[in-house]
Design a protein around this nucleic acid. Structure first.
Lengths: 210, 210
DNA sequence: AGGACAATTACCCAAATGGGTAATTTTGTT
DNA sequence: AACAAAATTACCCATTTGGGTAATTGTCCT
Protein backbone atom coordinates (compact mmCIF):
# COMPACT_ATOMS: atom_id res chain seq x y z
CA UNK A 1 0.00 0.00 0.00
CA UNK A 2 2.04 2.96 -1.15
CA UNK A 3 1.56 6.53 -0.17
CA UNK A 4 -0.26 7.68 -3.27
CA UNK A 5 -2.43 4.76 -4.18
CA UNK A 6 -6.11 5.49 -4.14
CA UNK A 7 -7.79 3.81 -1.21
CA UNK A 8 -11.17 2.29 -1.92
CA UNK A 9 -13.61 2.65 0.93
CA UNK A 10 -16.99 1.06 1.61
CA UNK A 11 -19.48 2.36 4.16
CA UNK A 12 -22.07 0.48 6.19
CA UNK A 13 -24.40 2.93 7.95
CA UNK A 14 -28.15 2.85 8.32
CA UNK A 15 -28.76 6.60 8.59
CA UNK A 16 -29.21 7.71 5.00
CA UNK A 17 -28.07 11.26 5.55
CA UNK A 18 -24.92 10.30 7.42
CA UNK A 19 -24.16 7.63 4.87
CA UNK A 20 -24.40 10.05 2.00
CA UNK A 21 -22.33 12.68 3.73
CA UNK A 22 -19.60 10.20 4.62
CA UNK A 23 -19.64 8.84 1.11
CA UNK A 24 -19.25 12.33 -0.31
CA UNK A 25 -16.46 13.29 2.06
CA UNK A 26 -14.48 10.21 1.16
CA UNK A 27 -15.20 10.14 -2.54
CA UNK A 28 -14.46 13.82 -3.09
CA UNK A 29 -11.13 13.69 -1.33
CA UNK A 30 -8.07 13.12 -3.50
CA UNK A 31 -6.55 9.69 -2.88
CA UNK A 32 -9.81 8.18 -1.68
CA UNK A 33 -12.70 6.55 -3.44
CA UNK A 34 -16.08 5.45 -2.16
CA UNK A 35 -18.01 3.45 -4.69
CA UNK A 36 -19.99 1.30 -2.29
CA UNK A 37 -22.24 2.09 0.62
CA UNK A 38 -24.80 -0.07 2.39
CA UNK A 39 -27.55 0.52 4.91
CA UNK A 40 -27.15 -2.85 6.63
CA UNK A 41 -24.77 -5.77 7.05
CA UNK A 42 -26.89 -8.16 5.03
CA UNK A 43 -26.65 -6.13 1.84
CA UNK A 44 -22.98 -5.40 2.56
CA UNK A 45 -22.27 -9.13 2.83
CA UNK A 46 -24.03 -9.56 -0.44
CA UNK A 47 -22.57 -6.69 -2.41
CA UNK A 48 -19.09 -6.22 -1.03
CA UNK A 49 -17.39 -9.28 -2.40
CA UNK A 50 -17.76 -8.28 -6.03
CA UNK A 51 -15.24 -5.53 -5.55
CA UNK A 52 -13.51 -5.87 -2.17
CA UNK A 53 -12.66 -2.44 -0.76
CA UNK A 54 -9.43 -1.65 1.06
CA UNK A 55 -11.24 -0.22 4.05
CA UNK A 56 -14.75 -0.51 5.45
CA UNK A 57 -16.26 2.08 7.75
CA UNK A 58 -18.74 0.20 9.88
CA UNK A 59 -21.50 1.49 12.11
CA UNK A 60 -22.50 -0.65 15.10
CA UNK A 61 -26.13 0.17 15.73
CA UNK A 62 -27.67 -1.34 12.63
CA UNK A 63 -31.01 -3.05 12.09
CA UNK A 64 -30.88 -6.85 12.41
CA UNK A 65 -27.21 -7.85 12.30
CA UNK A 66 -25.03 -5.51 14.36
CA UNK A 67 -21.91 -3.96 12.94
CA UNK A 68 -19.85 -6.12 15.26
CA UNK A 69 -21.30 -9.34 13.87
CA UNK A 70 -21.00 -7.74 10.45
CA UNK A 71 -17.26 -7.29 10.88
CA UNK A 72 -16.91 -10.86 12.06
CA UNK A 73 -18.71 -12.14 8.99
CA UNK A 74 -17.04 -9.83 6.48
CA UNK A 75 -13.51 -10.17 7.86
CA UNK A 76 -13.88 -13.91 7.39
CA UNK A 77 -14.43 -13.43 3.67
CA UNK A 78 -12.08 -10.47 3.21
CA UNK A 79 -9.09 -10.91 5.52
CA UNK A 80 -7.11 -8.27 3.60
CA UNK A 81 -9.68 -5.57 4.21
CA UNK A 82 -9.32 -3.26 7.20
CA UNK A 83 -12.41 -2.51 9.23
CA UNK A 84 -12.84 0.73 11.13
CA UNK A 85 -15.78 1.04 13.45
CA UNK A 86 -17.42 4.45 13.14
CA UNK A 87 -20.03 4.73 15.83
CA UNK A 88 -21.46 6.63 18.74
CA UNK A 89 -21.13 3.63 21.05
CA UNK A 90 -18.27 4.04 23.47
CA UNK A 91 -19.08 1.39 26.05
CA UNK A 92 -16.51 -1.27 26.91
CA UNK A 93 -18.46 -4.13 25.40
CA UNK A 94 -18.86 -2.44 22.04
CA UNK A 95 -15.19 -1.56 21.88
CA UNK A 96 -13.72 -4.88 22.97
CA UNK A 97 -16.18 -7.02 21.07
CA UNK A 98 -15.43 -5.03 17.92
CA UNK A 99 -11.72 -5.63 18.27
CA UNK A 100 -12.28 -9.32 18.99
CA UNK A 101 -14.49 -9.51 15.92
CA UNK A 102 -11.70 -8.21 13.73
CA UNK A 103 -11.94 -4.41 13.67
CA UNK A 104 -8.58 -2.68 13.30
CA UNK A 105 -9.72 0.84 14.14
CA UNK A 106 -12.40 2.43 16.28
CA UNK A 107 -13.59 5.98 15.76
CA UNK A 108 -16.42 7.88 17.35
CA UNK A 109 -18.82 9.73 15.12
CA UNK A 110 -17.63 13.10 16.37
CA UNK A 111 -14.38 12.51 14.49
CA UNK A 112 -13.84 15.47 12.14
CA UNK A 113 -13.59 14.67 8.40
CA UNK A 114 -9.88 15.44 8.24
CA UNK A 115 -9.21 13.00 11.05
CA UNK A 116 -11.40 10.41 9.42
CA UNK A 117 -9.50 10.60 6.15
CA UNK A 118 -6.22 10.52 8.02
CA UNK A 119 -7.39 7.45 9.91
CA UNK A 120 -8.32 5.64 6.72
CA UNK A 121 -4.85 6.34 5.39
CA UNK A 122 -3.30 5.27 8.66
CA UNK A 123 -5.06 1.94 8.87
CA UNK A 124 -3.76 1.10 5.41
CA UNK A 125 -0.23 1.96 6.50
CA UNK A 126 -0.40 -0.62 9.27
CA UNK A 127 -1.75 1.48 12.11
CA UNK A 128 -4.83 1.21 14.28
CA UNK A 129 -6.62 4.54 14.37
CA UNK A 130 -8.67 5.11 17.49
CA UNK A 131 -10.42 8.05 19.06
CA UNK A 132 -8.37 9.21 22.06
CA UNK A 133 -10.67 7.98 24.82
CA UNK A 134 -11.13 4.67 23.05
CA UNK A 135 -7.37 4.24 22.92
CA UNK A 136 -7.21 5.03 26.61
CA UNK A 137 -9.88 2.48 27.35
CA UNK A 138 -7.99 -0.21 25.48
CA UNK A 139 -4.65 0.60 27.06
CA UNK A 140 -6.29 0.71 30.47
CA UNK A 141 -7.54 -2.82 29.99
CA UNK A 142 -3.99 -4.08 30.49
CA UNK A 143 -3.73 -2.71 34.02
CA UNK A 144 -4.29 -4.89 37.02
CA UNK A 145 -7.37 -4.15 39.07
CA UNK A 146 -6.41 -1.35 41.49
CA UNK A 147 -8.41 -2.88 44.31
CA UNK A 148 -8.83 -6.55 44.97
CA UNK A 149 -11.24 -8.18 47.39
CA UNK A 150 -8.45 -10.60 48.27
CA UNK A 151 -5.81 -10.30 50.96
CA UNK A 152 -2.20 -10.29 49.82
CA UNK A 153 -1.75 -13.88 50.88
CA UNK A 154 -4.83 -14.93 48.98
CA UNK A 155 -3.62 -13.11 45.88
CA UNK A 156 -0.33 -14.92 46.18
CA UNK A 157 -2.12 -18.24 46.29
CA UNK A 158 -4.48 -17.32 43.48
CA UNK A 159 -1.44 -16.63 41.37
CA UNK A 160 -0.11 -20.11 41.94
CA UNK A 161 -3.55 -21.56 41.39
CA UNK A 162 -3.51 -19.96 37.95
CA UNK A 163 -0.20 -21.64 37.23
CA UNK A 164 -1.91 -24.97 37.76
CA UNK A 165 -0.17 -25.77 41.04
CA UNK A 166 -1.98 -28.19 43.33
CA UNK A 167 -2.37 -27.95 47.09
CA UNK A 168 0.87 -29.70 47.91
CA UNK A 169 2.94 -27.69 45.49
CA UNK A 170 1.53 -24.42 46.74
CA UNK A 171 1.97 -25.49 50.35
CA UNK A 172 5.58 -26.43 49.79
CA UNK A 173 6.47 -23.27 47.92
CA UNK A 174 4.93 -21.08 50.62
CA UNK A 175 6.23 -23.15 53.55
CA UNK A 176 2.75 -23.68 54.96
CA UNK A 177 0.55 -26.73 55.35
CA UNK A 178 -1.81 -28.03 52.70
CA UNK A 179 -4.68 -27.37 55.05
CA UNK A 180 -3.81 -23.71 55.18
CA UNK A 181 -3.67 -23.54 51.43
CA UNK A 182 -7.12 -25.07 51.33
CA UNK A 183 -8.43 -22.55 53.82
CA UNK A 184 -7.14 -19.69 51.69
CA UNK A 185 -8.55 -21.20 48.55
CA UNK A 186 -11.93 -21.54 50.19
CA UNK A 187 -11.77 -17.87 51.09
CA UNK A 188 -10.81 -17.02 47.52
CA UNK A 189 -13.72 -19.00 46.12
CA UNK A 190 -16.12 -17.32 48.48
CA UNK A 191 -14.89 -13.84 47.58
CA UNK A 192 -14.83 -14.44 43.85
CA UNK A 193 -18.16 -16.26 43.89
CA UNK A 194 -16.74 -19.36 42.23
CA UNK A 195 -16.66 -23.02 43.13
CA UNK A 196 -13.77 -24.46 41.17
CA UNK A 197 -10.22 -23.80 40.09
CA UNK A 198 -11.18 -23.33 36.48
CA UNK A 199 -13.66 -20.62 37.38
CA UNK A 200 -11.18 -19.03 39.74
CA UNK A 201 -8.55 -18.81 37.02
CA UNK A 202 -11.01 -17.41 34.53
CA UNK A 203 -12.31 -14.84 36.98
CA UNK A 204 -8.85 -13.87 38.13
CA UNK A 205 -7.79 -13.18 34.57
CA UNK A 206 -10.95 -11.44 33.43
CA UNK A 207 -11.09 -9.24 36.52
CA UNK A 208 -7.35 -8.59 36.20
CA UNK A 209 -6.57 -9.77 39.68
CA UNK A 210 -3.32 -11.35 38.62
CA UNK B 1 -6.28 19.88 32.11
CA UNK B 2 -7.39 22.68 29.83
CA UNK B 3 -6.22 23.39 26.35
CA UNK B 4 -3.76 26.15 27.15
CA UNK B 5 -2.27 25.13 30.43
CA UNK B 6 1.45 24.57 30.31
CA UNK B 7 2.27 20.89 30.56
CA UNK B 8 5.26 20.01 32.69
CA UNK B 9 7.32 17.15 31.33
CA UNK B 10 10.08 15.06 32.83
CA UNK B 11 12.45 12.88 30.82
CA UNK B 12 14.20 9.66 31.77
CA UNK B 13 16.78 8.73 29.15
CA UNK B 14 20.32 7.49 29.55
CA UNK B 15 21.76 8.80 26.29
CA UNK B 16 22.95 12.29 27.17
CA UNK B 17 22.62 13.71 23.70
CA UNK B 18 19.09 12.40 23.16
CA UNK B 19 18.08 13.56 26.60
CA UNK B 20 19.29 17.07 25.97
CA UNK B 21 17.68 17.28 22.56
CA UNK B 22 14.35 16.02 23.88
CA UNK B 23 14.53 18.40 26.76
CA UNK B 24 15.19 21.30 24.42
CA UNK B 25 12.41 20.35 22.04
CA UNK B 26 9.89 20.19 24.84
CA UNK B 27 11.07 23.18 26.82
CA UNK B 28 11.31 25.50 23.84
CA UNK B 29 7.83 24.70 22.62
CA UNK B 30 5.05 27.02 23.76
CA UNK B 31 2.69 25.28 26.15
CA UNK B 32 5.32 22.80 27.32
CA UNK B 33 7.96 22.89 29.99
CA UNK B 34 10.75 20.49 30.79
CA UNK B 35 12.46 21.29 34.05
CA UNK B 36 13.55 17.79 34.97
CA UNK B 37 15.51 15.13 33.18
CA UNK B 38 17.23 12.03 34.51
CA UNK B 39 19.66 9.49 33.16
CA UNK B 40 18.24 6.57 35.14
CA UNK B 41 15.21 5.44 37.11
CA UNK B 42 16.96 5.58 40.44
CA UNK B 43 17.62 9.30 40.25
CA UNK B 44 14.19 9.88 38.77
CA UNK B 45 12.58 8.11 41.72
CA UNK B 46 14.62 10.31 43.93
CA UNK B 47 14.15 13.66 42.23
CA UNK B 48 10.74 13.51 40.67
CA UNK B 49 8.57 13.69 43.73
CA UNK B 50 9.66 17.16 44.72
CA UNK B 51 7.82 18.59 41.78
CA UNK B 52 5.62 15.94 40.15
CA UNK B 53 5.41 16.50 36.40
CA UNK B 54 2.25 16.06 34.36
CA UNK B 55 3.93 13.74 31.91
CA UNK B 56 7.04 11.56 31.97
CA UNK B 57 8.80 10.42 28.81
CA UNK B 58 10.45 7.16 29.73
CA UNK B 59 13.08 5.16 27.91
CA UNK B 60 13.13 1.39 28.41
CA UNK B 61 16.74 0.38 27.91
CA UNK B 62 18.27 1.99 30.95
CA UNK B 63 21.16 0.91 33.15
CA UNK B 64 20.10 -1.07 36.23
CA UNK B 65 16.34 -0.59 36.63
CA UNK B 66 14.52 -0.78 33.30
CA UNK B 67 12.08 1.87 32.23
CA UNK B 68 9.28 -0.63 32.64
CA UNK B 69 10.09 -1.23 36.29
CA UNK B 70 10.65 2.50 36.58
CA UNK B 71 7.11 3.22 35.45
CA UNK B 72 5.76 0.65 37.87
CA UNK B 73 7.60 2.29 40.75
CA UNK B 74 6.88 5.88 39.77
CA UNK B 75 3.23 5.36 38.87
CA UNK B 76 2.76 3.99 42.37
CA UNK B 77 3.90 7.27 43.86
CA UNK B 78 2.41 9.55 41.23
CA UNK B 79 -0.88 8.10 40.05
CA UNK B 80 -1.89 11.40 38.44
CA UNK B 81 1.14 11.50 36.20
CA UNK B 82 0.92 10.08 32.69
CA UNK B 83 3.80 7.96 31.47
CA UNK B 84 4.72 7.70 27.82
CA UNK B 85 7.32 5.15 26.83
CA UNK B 86 9.74 6.59 24.29
CA UNK B 87 11.95 3.79 23.09
CA UNK B 88 13.36 1.83 20.21
CA UNK B 89 12.00 -1.44 21.61
CA UNK B 90 9.01 -2.66 19.65
CA UNK B 91 8.82 -6.27 20.76
CA UNK B 92 5.60 -7.63 22.25
CA UNK B 93 7.02 -8.09 25.71
CA UNK B 94 8.26 -4.53 26.00
CA UNK B 95 4.95 -3.13 24.80
CA UNK B 96 2.61 -5.23 26.91
CA UNK B 97 4.74 -5.15 30.02
CA UNK B 98 4.92 -1.37 29.76
CA UNK B 99 1.15 -1.06 29.59
CA UNK B 100 0.73 -3.50 32.47
CA UNK B 101 3.22 -1.48 34.46
CA UNK B 102 1.18 1.65 34.03
CA UNK B 103 2.30 3.39 30.85
CA UNK B 104 -0.46 5.28 29.07
CA UNK B 105 1.35 5.91 25.80
CA UNK B 106 4.00 4.15 23.75
CA UNK B 107 6.05 5.94 21.13
CA UNK B 108 9.01 4.77 19.12
CA UNK B 109 12.05 6.99 18.96
CA UNK B 110 11.55 7.72 15.30
CA UNK B 111 8.54 9.83 16.26
CA UNK B 112 9.04 13.32 14.82
CA UNK B 113 9.13 16.24 17.30
CA UNK B 114 5.75 17.59 16.21
CA UNK B 115 4.15 14.22 16.82
CA UNK B 116 5.86 13.93 20.15
CA UNK B 117 4.52 17.26 21.34
CA UNK B 118 1.10 16.39 20.02
CA UNK B 119 1.24 13.09 21.88
CA UNK B 120 2.13 14.79 25.14
CA UNK B 121 -0.86 17.07 24.70
CA UNK B 122 -3.06 14.13 23.80
CA UNK B 123 -2.17 12.02 26.79
CA UNK B 124 -3.16 14.92 29.04
CA UNK B 125 -6.50 15.20 27.26
CA UNK B 126 -7.32 11.61 28.13
CA UNK B 127 -5.89 9.81 25.13
CA UNK B 128 -3.29 7.11 24.72
CA UNK B 129 -0.79 8.14 22.08
CA UNK B 130 0.88 5.22 20.34
CA UNK B 131 3.04 4.80 17.27
CA UNK B 132 0.94 3.24 14.51
CA UNK B 133 2.44 -0.22 14.52
CA UNK B 134 2.37 -0.33 18.30
CA UNK B 135 -1.34 0.46 18.21
CA UNK B 136 -1.83 -2.29 15.68
CA UNK B 137 0.05 -4.73 17.86
CA UNK B 138 -2.15 -3.89 20.84
CA UNK B 139 -5.38 -4.09 18.90
CA UNK B 140 -4.25 -7.34 17.35
CA UNK B 141 -3.82 -8.84 20.79
CA UNK B 142 -7.60 -9.01 21.14
CA UNK B 143 -8.02 -11.35 18.19
CA UNK B 144 -8.41 -15.04 18.64
CA UNK B 145 -5.55 -17.20 17.47
CA UNK B 146 -6.09 -17.80 13.75
CA UNK B 147 -4.96 -21.39 13.99
CA UNK B 148 -5.60 -23.74 16.85
CA UNK B 149 -4.12 -27.18 17.43
CA UNK B 150 -7.55 -28.29 18.62
CA UNK B 151 -10.38 -29.74 16.62
CA UNK B 152 -13.64 -27.81 16.58
CA UNK B 153 -15.20 -30.20 19.06
CA UNK B 154 -12.25 -29.85 21.38
CA UNK B 155 -12.44 -26.06 21.17
CA UNK B 156 -16.09 -26.26 22.05
CA UNK B 157 -15.30 -28.32 25.11
CA UNK B 158 -12.37 -26.13 26.10
CA UNK B 159 -14.74 -23.20 26.06
CA UNK B 160 -17.04 -24.89 28.55
CA UNK B 161 -14.07 -25.97 30.60
CA UNK B 162 -13.15 -22.30 30.93
CA UNK B 163 -16.64 -21.58 32.18
CA UNK B 164 -16.01 -23.96 35.04
CA UNK B 165 -18.39 -26.64 33.82
CA UNK B 166 -17.70 -30.15 35.06
CA UNK B 167 -17.84 -33.36 33.05
CA UNK B 168 -21.51 -33.98 33.59
CA UNK B 169 -22.56 -30.46 32.73
CA UNK B 170 -20.51 -30.47 29.57
CA UNK B 171 -21.78 -33.90 28.62
CA UNK B 172 -25.40 -32.89 29.11
CA UNK B 173 -25.09 -29.63 27.20
CA UNK B 174 -23.46 -31.36 24.24
CA UNK B 175 -25.72 -34.45 24.36
CA UNK B 176 -22.77 -36.81 24.65
CA UNK B 177 -21.55 -39.09 27.42
CA UNK B 178 -19.25 -38.04 30.21
CA UNK B 179 -16.71 -40.53 28.96
CA UNK B 180 -16.57 -38.77 25.63
CA UNK B 181 -16.05 -35.46 27.32
CA UNK B 182 -13.18 -36.98 29.25
CA UNK B 183 -11.66 -38.33 26.06
CA UNK B 184 -11.78 -34.90 24.48
CA UNK B 185 -10.34 -33.27 27.55
CA UNK B 186 -7.48 -35.73 27.57
CA UNK B 187 -6.78 -34.82 23.95
CA UNK B 188 -6.91 -31.13 24.85
CA UNK B 189 -4.46 -31.60 27.71
CA UNK B 190 -2.08 -33.49 25.48
CA UNK B 191 -2.19 -30.85 22.76
CA UNK B 192 -1.84 -27.91 25.12
CA UNK B 193 0.85 -29.63 27.18
CA UNK B 194 -1.08 -29.25 30.43
CA UNK B 195 -2.29 -31.64 33.09
CA UNK B 196 -5.13 -29.82 34.83
CA UNK B 197 -8.15 -27.65 34.23
CA UNK B 198 -6.55 -24.61 35.75
CA UNK B 199 -3.59 -24.84 33.40
CA UNK B 200 -5.88 -25.50 30.48
CA UNK B 201 -7.90 -22.36 31.21
CA UNK B 202 -4.80 -20.25 31.63
CA UNK B 203 -3.26 -21.55 28.43
CA UNK B 204 -6.49 -21.19 26.50
CA UNK B 205 -6.77 -17.56 27.49
CA UNK B 206 -3.12 -16.62 27.07
CA UNK B 207 -2.90 -18.30 23.69
CA UNK B 208 -6.22 -16.76 22.70
CA UNK B 209 -7.81 -20.08 21.86
CA UNK B 210 -11.17 -19.03 23.25
C1' DA C 1 -7.05 -3.82 76.56
C1' DG C 2 -10.05 -5.22 73.20
C1' DG C 3 -11.89 -6.10 68.70
C1' DA C 4 -11.38 -7.05 63.81
C1' DC C 5 -9.06 -9.26 60.48
C1' DA C 6 -5.66 -12.31 58.64
C1' DA C 7 -3.02 -16.47 58.74
C1' DT C 8 -2.45 -20.83 60.29
C1' DT C 9 -3.64 -25.81 61.16
C1' DA C 10 -6.66 -29.98 61.44
C1' DC C 11 -10.25 -33.60 60.25
C1' DC C 12 -14.30 -35.92 57.83
C1' DC C 13 -16.33 -37.19 53.54
C1' DA C 14 -18.53 -37.10 49.06
C1' DA C 15 -17.60 -35.80 44.46
C1' DA C 16 -14.68 -34.70 40.67
C1' DT C 17 -10.53 -35.20 38.25
C1' DG C 18 -6.58 -37.27 35.67
C1' DG C 19 -4.07 -41.24 33.58
C1' DG C 20 -4.18 -45.58 31.20
C1' DT C 21 -6.23 -48.62 27.83
C1' DA C 22 -9.36 -50.15 24.20
C1' DA C 23 -12.93 -50.25 20.89
C1' DT C 24 -16.71 -48.62 17.69
C1' DT C 25 -18.85 -45.27 14.70
C1' DT C 26 -18.87 -41.13 11.91
C1' DT C 27 -16.98 -38.00 8.81
C1' DG C 28 -14.16 -36.22 5.32
C1' DT C 29 -10.92 -36.63 1.64
C1' DT C 30 -8.38 -38.68 -1.84
C1' DA D 1 -13.86 -47.71 -2.18
C1' DA D 2 -10.20 -46.87 1.01
C1' DC D 3 -7.86 -44.49 4.32
C1' DA D 4 -7.15 -41.07 7.92
C1' DA D 5 -8.89 -38.19 11.28
C1' DA D 6 -12.34 -37.15 14.50
C1' DA D 7 -15.96 -38.33 17.59
C1' DT D 8 -17.93 -41.46 20.47
C1' DT D 9 -18.31 -44.76 24.41
C1' DA D 10 -16.60 -47.67 28.32
C1' DC D 11 -14.00 -49.23 32.58
C1' DC D 12 -10.36 -49.30 36.39
C1' DC D 13 -8.11 -46.79 39.99
C1' DA D 14 -5.32 -43.50 42.53
C1' DT D 15 -5.23 -38.69 43.53
C1' DT D 16 -7.22 -34.22 44.01
C1' DT D 17 -10.65 -31.22 44.97
C1' DG D 18 -14.48 -28.83 47.36
C1' DG D 19 -17.68 -28.14 51.38
C1' DG D 20 -18.41 -28.14 56.27
C1' DT D 21 -16.71 -27.19 60.84
C1' DA D 22 -13.56 -25.64 64.48
C1' DA D 23 -9.67 -23.82 66.82
C1' DT D 24 -5.15 -21.27 67.65
C1' DT D 25 -1.95 -17.60 66.81
C1' DG D 26 -0.49 -13.14 65.21
C1' DT D 27 -1.14 -8.38 63.84
C1' DC D 28 -3.00 -3.96 63.34
C1' DC D 29 -5.79 -0.23 64.81
C1' DT D 30 -8.72 1.99 68.13
Amino acid sequence: MDEFEIISVAIVEDDTEIRQILSLIVDRSPGYSCKQSFSDCESALDGIRKDPPDVVLMDIGLPRMSGIDGVRALKEKLPETDFIMLTIQDDDDSVFNSLCAGATGYLLKDTPPTELLHSIREVRKGGSPMSPNIARKIVGSFRRAPESPLTSRESEILDKLCNGDNYKTIATSLFISGNTVRAHIKAIYRKLHVTSRAQAVRTAISKKLI
